[in-house]
Simulated scan of single mutants.
Amino acid sequence: MDEAYYEPISHIVDERDAGQPLGTVLRRRLKCSRKLLSRLKLTERGITVNGQRRYTNERVAVGDRIEIRMPKERSEDILPQPMELDVLFEDADLMAVNKPAGLIVHPTHGHYVNTLANGVVHHWLERGETVRFRPVHRLDQHTSGVLLIAKTPYAHQQLSEQIQRKRVEKIYLALVHGHTPDRGTIDAPIDRNPEQPHIRMVRPDGYPSVTHYEAVRRLRGVTLLRVMLETGRTHQIRVHMKHIGHPLVGDPMYGQPEADRAAGAAMDRQALHAWRLGFRHPVSGEPMLLEAEMPPDMAGCIAALSAREETKEE
């Protein structure tokens, strides 16, 4: 394979698509977006049929081998930095890591090192891979758990589309104050607080936001929840749980420090962990389910609360 390109994505034309324009087949069978197709057209070997470059308005025949290729890229603006990574899965198309709490995902102004991106870029450099850092979704700095990274533009487009179509299962573990109902749905729009733009709040004119939850375990004064996101607004779980009167333990922005102290719940960050991510592989289409074990700080907090409860019962 040409060193300047990622592995080609291919499709063999059958009777269903015989006589159709190439562009139609690319959109229908390889799920290429118009934006991706525009990019492929500008690439020397971006779109080929039986090894020859072809225009998207040309028609295809049964047995034609269609291939798309994306030129390799690297994140030139991200400094490689050795870092211990908990890699849950990796192949030529995607990578999933268990992000620890406290680690920023991407460099920002004034914060160019000690981010997940620095460690991942170094990891790829050590493996001899030319890849650009493309996180598919976001996790707050102090939220731990599964983070998905696309390794090619095609994989990024496919995974992003799954998220937009709500075909990605996102399940979090959250420790909240009080005892919630066994299960529930919070359907409350979210937007910025006009007085404090870095903080989100429930507002009638906000963006549609839906969170589902179910109780996993109840302790004295707190509940461990399994939370499912239907939408993905910034700080959504934290804002929604505060809205219904059950803020997250340890949350410095939306929590209740006095409630943390009263419950004896010791956490240096919000007790929120991205536990499970379910999706289809962007190239093979195979179903995938990735899980990240609950981190020591959350597990330790639950163990301490459980021990305190047992002591009081004695």
Rank of each mutant, 00 (worst) to 15 (best):
Q164E: 14
A101C: 11
T48A: 10
E90D: 04
L175H: 09
P247V: 01
Q162D: 13
I104M: 13
E258F: 06
A299N: 00
Q236R: 01
L22V: 09
M228V: 14
I47G: 02
R138P: 08
E76L: 11
Y254G: 07
L175M: 13
A92D: 15
G128C: 01
T311W: 14
T130P: 09
M241T: 09
Q196H: 15
Q52M: 09
M241C: 00
E293K: 14
H212M: 03
G232C: 02
G110T: 05
R217H: 12
P197Q: 05
A263Y: 08
S10L: 11
R59M: 11
R261G: 00
V25T: 07
K31S: 15
L159Y: 09
V222G: 10
T143C: 05
K242W: 02
A215M: 01
T211L: 01
V136S: 04
R29E: 14
P204W: 03
S33F: 10
Q236F: 02
I199C: 04
E258A: 11
C32P: 11
P287M: 05
V62A: 13
E126T: 08
P194L: 00
I237G: 00
H177E: 12
V105T: 14
T211G: 01
G300T: 05
V222Q: 09
L219P: 00
R28Q: 15
R308A: 14
A303V: 10
D17M: 06
N98A: 14
R59W: 03
R218L: 06
P287L: 13
R132A: 14
T56V: 15
H235A: 07
M253S: 15
H106Y: 10
N193A: 03
M267D: 07
T152M: 05
M288I: 11
F89G: 00
G184N: 09
R200Y: 10
L22Q: 04
H246Q: 02
V113F: 07
K242D: 00
A307L: 14
P247H: 08
T211F: 02
H179A: 13
C301H: 04
S75D: 03
A174T: 00
G178A: 13
P257Q: 08
G206E: 00
A18G: 02
G145V: 12
L30K: 03
G255L: 11
E314I: 07
V97R: 08
D64K: 07
T231H: 11
G46A: 08
R220Y: 10
V105G: 04
M70F: 15
L305Y: 03
P247D: 08
E195S: 10
L42E: 15
I190Q: 01
L36Y: 02
V210L: 10
T223Q: 03
H137P: 08
R233V: 06
N57G: 10
P282T: 07
A155W: 09
H123W: 15
A155N: 09
D297G: 00
V60W: 02
M201P: 06
L272D: 03
E293Q: 14
T130E: 13
Y6M: 09
N98K: 05
G232K: 07
G300R: 04
P282V: 09
P181K: 09
L219C: 01
T115A: 00
G145P: 12
L79I: 12
V283P: 12
G178D: 02
N118C: 03
A215G: 02
F279R: 11
M228N: 14
H246M: 02
G178F: 13
N57C: 05
N114A: 11
P107R: 05
S144K: 12
